[in-house]
Design a protein around this nucleic acid. Structure first.
Lengths: 269, 269
DNA sequence: CGCCACGTTGAATTCAGTCAAAGAGCGTGG
DNA sequence: CCACGCTCTTTGACTGAATTCAACGTGGCG
């Protein structure tokens, strides 16, 4: 865990670097974002449903999840948060959280105040644009989870989740040789996939026996990503990576112009 | 349809009015938002996956949905769009749509350009805040759909969807006597709920026989909302309605101050 | 060593899917 | 006005994927 943990530093800048060209300065600012440095043990709530959120934070190390518990006690995990993930850009608008966020492993995170964020929006247009991009990608992932739960069978759901995690960990340089840490119990996987732990186990066995993956000591090796993608009917459209089109370039130019105007008039006043 | 259609005018301002106190001027601007006035027949794509989105729009009349088709042909409907719904605040950042939007009934919508939106953000802080709120609520609905598909059985999913729709139509004054138009086929319901049309039919029969609803001629009457909410394990936390807390009030004050600064300096330049 | 949480496996059950056929509603055109 | 064709709804019988219940295995840790 320690070895992987080490490489999770700078995850946010690495992630955002895929969305927009960041300067050395941008990267530095992102890596030092956040005033405090908070720790949470595994299985502790970071934010609980019903609380009034105090601030936003960046996950620096470990794994967390958003989840909701139904009155009958069933739990659904909505998203995983991995290093570099933000929570939550709009949160300060909320009356009360409609879901909880919990640490799945020991977690280190940095709180980011609204002021910091607003400063960023003014002084670092590219960063701010990349952040919005990242938010959009998160939404796309939510939509894709809906597709998964609604229209994929158990194998497909698991395969899909693994492809997604591979992809996300790759974006923050935490994959080596198709291998990444997956510090989740089968119960937690089940609560994510809308299945029972027993059935998750069976599907996992099935994929193991077909030589698609190895999972031991919380380490996942994806041996046959192509087959997994096929089982998952994986389509990376929604990830919004790759070169930005013409319109996007114009967007950046425009943004920068606007910001310069804004700053000029602020300095003048 | 015509009678209901008539009452869908001004849906956006009615919806946003729940999030922030709007002036008469605000309402007027919202109701006249959008340059063009486009029509789509039922079952036509409004935006197709892979397209580069040109502009954002407001749904004025009718019903639409976001959906995705898997390679094997299965369809999952992700959200319904009803009058007053926007699509999509960030869309102009996208490289390409990762899902499609289709008209489910004949649809009337107004395109809104980015410039219009930016003007709004500058000149109408309350409107702009309400819009962000509304976006957050949409996200909350996505999360809740994940919970539904992951952890509710067929009855629960249907009951939940009906409660949600009742609630959304109420917010735009399109419910009378627990009755609203539900212009969906059972196939479309099935593609939303992650079920087969046959099973949707059975569940519908079941709820009918228990006297919980009447559905005929595309008109839904919810006779026993309490029971439905119980079946659905409905929790209206996520809807973010009701009075805003202290922090939110401060947020508005701050916003207005910022905007005044902004405008003053712009005028000066 | 023994606890405890997690993983694994089997057998019985159940919820939802599949296949198939018939009925109802609606618009069109003869 | 009725017949036809279409889509949508309804119902039944059968199948199958996933759950439930239950037991046993296993590995880490005080």
């Amino acid at each position: 865990m320690a070895d992987r943990g080490a490489s999770s530093s700078g995850a946010l800048s690495r992630k955002l670097g895929h969305f927009a060209p960041l300067s050395v300065e941008d990267v530095q600012i992102l890596d030092n974002l956040g005033t405090s440095d908070e720790h949470f043990e595994a299985h502790r709530d970071i934010v609980a449903e019903g609380e009034v959120p105090r601030s936003m934070f960046v996950l620096k190390e470990g794994m967390a999840c958003r989840y909701r518990i139904l009155p009958d006690g069933r739990r659904q995990i909505i998203t995983f948060l991995i290093p570099g993930d933000l929570c939550d850009l709009h949160v300060f608008l909320l009356k009360a959280m409609d879901h909880s966020i919990a640490a799945l492993t020991p977690v280190r995170l940095a709180a980011v105040s609204r002021d910091q964020l607003m400063d960023l929006a003014v002084s670092r247009p590219r960063v701010s644009a990349a952040l919005r991009w990242s938010t959009m990608q998160e939404e796309a992932m939510l939509r894709e989870r809906i597709v998964s739960l609604g229209r994929r069978d158990a194998r497909g759901r698991l395969a899909y989740l693994l492809c997604e995690l591979l992809w996300r960990y790759q974006a923050i340089d935490m994959v080596e040789d198709h291998t990444f840490r997956l510090p989740l119990t089968q119960l937690e996987l089940a609560d994510t996939l809308g299945l029972t732990p027993v059935h998750v186990n069976r599907v996992l066995q099935n994929l193991r026996r077909q030589g698609m993956l190895i999972l031991e000591h919380r380490t996942m090796v994806l041996l046959d990503v192509d087959s997994l993608q096929e089982i998952a009917q994986f389509n990376s459209n929604y990830l919004h990576l790759g070169g930005a089109p013409e319109e996007v370039r114009r967007f950046f130019e425009r943004l920068e112009l606007e910001r310069q105007h804004g700053r000029a008039s602020t300095e003048a006043s």
